[in-house]
């Protein structure tokens, strides 16, 4: 029983990372209709950036993370403006192919700037807490807490502010939003900045929990999309629940079945969901 609780706790930690990745993907998809496949690689760029700042420049972790988050916002906006905006009115397939090209580019840039070796962000968090018999390393606890704070902040932004209202308006009806005086040119920039910031946060978490290496970003984004399929596309609660479900399922599979095949679990779950509930677990009937 304790073993089970332990695995679930591990699953929630990795699930938090999936939630952040999926939240970025789901807002971009739900509001702009773009399957932003480069999201994972851009997120890992943020993780690498923190690693370089902390490990080789000697910057404090608490300064490096905000810097990376802000850079991430800039990069996100830039990607929207330079790459996706030109194909806004073209076939949706074109945006996806642009996303594939971006993935190659960002992966290439990561490789060029940070090398092919795997890196771990030196956080200095090496304490291990024990709560009612369940051990939880300090880093995992912080990851879960940080993810919770970010999810709450994002929800508050989208639900509570004027800008958030404008974003939701554009998602519901672009033309009506224009008529209501919403500046629809700036909305995609804001959405991309916000989702890339969440992605960078996830990248930092991956870098501190596990390691960043070439290909990790791609694996992450595929899992993020698996979460979207689980939770229903464009759904924020769906991304949160889907991410946690995937994280816990993977941890249980790794703990009790086989760790080599734990990555297959995500896809098997995804395929089963598609077969029986193509609209996602939380998606409404079409």
């Amino acid at each position: 029983m304790l073993e089970l609780v332990q695995q679930i706790t591990n699953g929630v930690a990795i699930g938090s990372v999936y939630v952040l990745i999926a939240l970025g993907l789901t807002t971009v998809f739900g509001i702009l209709g773009i399957a932003h496949f480069a999201h994972g690689s851009v997120s890992m760029f943020g993780g690498y950036l923190v690693y370089v700042l902390v490990a080789s420049q000697g910057v404090s972790l608490w300064l490096a993370i905000p810097v990376a988050l802000i850079v991430g916002m800039g990069v996100g906006g830039l990607i929207e403006f330079l790459a996706y905006r030109p194909v806004r009115n073209a076939n949706h397939i074109n945006a996806f192919i642009i996303a594939l090209g971006l993935t190659m580019m960002v992966e290439g840039i990561n490789l060029q700037l940070f090398g092919a070796d795997q890196v771990v962000i030196p956080t200095g968090f090496d304490r291990v807490f024990e709560i009612a018999g369940v051990t939880i390393p300090e880093t995992r606890l912080y990851v879960i807490l940080a993810a919770t704070v970010l999810v709450i902040a994002m929800t508050a932004f989208v639900e509570g502010t004027k800008t958030g209202q404008a974003i939701r308006a554009v998602a519901q009806n672009r033309d009506a939003a224009i008529l209501m005086g919403v500046n629809v040119r700036s909305i995609p920039l804001i959405v991309f900045a916000m989702s890339t910031m969440l992605g960078v946060a996830a990248g930092v978490m991956v870098g501190s929990l596990f390691a960043i290496a070439p290909g990790v970003g791609e694996a992450m984004v595929v899992k993020g999309f698996a979460v979207l399929i689980l939770g229903g596309l464009g759904s924020i609660p769906g991304a949160i629940i889907g991410g946690l479900v995937l994280g816990v399922t993977e941890a249980l599979a790794a703990g009790f079945l086989s760790s080599a095949y734990k990555d297959v679990i995500a896809f098997v779950v995804m395929i089963v969901v598609l077969l029986f509930r193509p609209q996602g677990l939380l998606g409404g009937a079409k």
Partner: peptide, 25 residues
């Protein structure tokens, strides 16, 4: 059969997941 139940980007991502499964196996 299951992946063609979804369209557009989703289809692309599901097939991509298949490629990953094949690779892992």
């Amino acid at each position: 059969y299951p992946s063609l139940r979804v369209k557009g980007h989703y289809f692309a991502i599901v097939t991509l997941a298949f490629n990953m499964v094949i690779f892992i196996v």
